[in-house]
Amino acid sequence: MGYRAPDRPRRAARGALSNDASRYDRFVSDAPLPDRIDTEVREEMVGRVIATNKSPDIGFDRSINPYRGCEHGCIYCFARPTHAWLGLSPGLDFETKLIARPNAAVALRRELGARSYVPKLIAIGTNTDPYQPIERDRRIMRDLLEVLRDHRHPVGITTKGTLVERDIDILTDMGPELCRVGLSVTTLDDRLARALEPRVPVPSRRLKAIERLAQAGVHVRVMVSPVIPGLTDHEVERILRSAADAGAVAASMIPLRLPLEVAPLFEEWLRAHVPDRARKVLNRVREYHGGKLYDAGFGDRMRGRGVHAELLRARFERACREAGLVRHLPPLRTDLFAVPGAQMSLF
């Protein structure tokens, strides 16, 4: 299969080149897109904010998403297909038509205060980033953290956003027994990062955020995710070493995942930005997933399989040992959980 430069224009600070209909749409529009697409934010009031899952290959069974869609615009984002559930495109709509949940903290406080509630780790940022640009004004993530702090509830945060530094006061109040932060670094090449992740702070700035969090006593995991074979996989050792030097104490890695609409969006991006590497990247991705661009099977979807996947894991494990980064941190505590204002029983 040959590759050609796409006939769709690149838009400044946007990841996707197109806005094609989702898998649920029966009708396709051929209307041209404007050269500039501004970010739109709608609000969604929620009755419950804690989402649960039964996936056996992830380390949590409950999570919170303050926002739907993500202005960061990472072209590889596995969450893009979730916008199809809203009748929106996983392409440009995902990064320009956002939904905020302004009453998320109120809903969370109500859920945590229920007599039947049993505390377990809550993960935030596992779908869309809680520290994307609109959080600066909306402050929904900060409100959520204040509730979790008040309840002494464990939380794991995943982000690329350096706005997490704003909340160091809350994170230090909670301490390493109740919170930790995973900060994603995909590449150390600022120019490549700008194309892959157009509205994310550059890698050097994210390393600085790791340093500031670590200096405040926050346990930070560097997340080398996703590793893009044939494009960023050669950087794994340098990313781990740089993160360890900045103060990270742990590390994780996930190879590129291209579910549903993400695959054609990523192919389109490759042809536009690195056409000379497109064939190699896609062929290597297929090797990771049994000949397909994606395999959703539990376990393999997070690891990949085959010779190159095994070599990548071996390199990662060795680099972690050499950098002094652990793979697994002790579990966060749930026995400190308390409902503010609740009276203890005398019997």
Rank of each mutant, 00 (worst) to 15 (best):
R101P: 02
V262F: 01
T52Y: 05
S63Y: 12
D20F: 02
T162D: 15
E40N: 12
H308M: 13
G290L: 10
A246E: 04
A246S: 11
P255D: 08
E287A: 12
E268S: 14
E267S: 08
R206L: 11
L148M: 05
L98F: 13
L258G: 03
A278C: 09
C179K: 00
A263K: 03
G217P: 02
H234M: 03
M174R: 01
P32I: 05
S18C: 07
Q215S: 10
S63G: 12
R180F: 14
E146D: 08
K120F: 00
N53V: 05
V262S: 09
A250K: 00
E111P: 00
S22E: 15
R48F: 00
H219T: 15
R136V: 08
E237Y: 01
M344Q: 12
L256A: 04
L260H: 09
F94P: 11
V249S: 15
G156W: 01
H219G: 00
V200H: 06
D35E: 07
G113A: 13
L346Y: 00
L311P: 02
E146L: 07
P6D: 11
G230M: 12
R257N: 09
Q215T: 14
S252C: 03
P66G: 09
E40V: 06
V220E: 06
D167N: 14
G59L: 14
A114Q: 07
K208H: 11
P255H: 09
A13S: 14
V222Y: 05
L188S: 03
V118T: 05
L192V: 05
D93Q: 06
F337W: 06
G125E: 06
S18M: 03
A107G: 04
N127L: 09
L145C: 02
R36D: 06
R327Y: 02
R26H: 15
P119Y: 11
L121C: 14
A248R: 03
R305M: 13
E197Q: 10
D7N: 15
G113D: 12
R180T: 03
D30M: 10
D245I: 12
A31H: 10
F347P: 00
D20Q: 11
I134A: 15
I228C: 02
G304Y: 05
F94L: 12
E43I: 07
G217Q: 04
T39V: 14
R221P: 00
D7C: 15
L231F: 00
A338M: 08
A243Y: 02
E235A: 01
P226M: 09
L311E: 05
L256W: 00
L325F: 02
H273P: 00
W85Y: 10
L312V: 02
H219I: 15
P119W: 03
L312Q: 08
S225H: 05
L188M: 06
G299I: 04
V274I: 11
R271A: 12
C320L: 10
L260D: 15
A250G: 08
Y294Q: 08
R11W: 12
F94V: 13
A214H: 07
R238V: 10
P6G: 06
W269T: 10
P259R: 13
P330C: 07
R48V: 03
A209E: 07
I37E: 14
F316G: 03
H289D: 10
A104Q: 09
L346W: 02
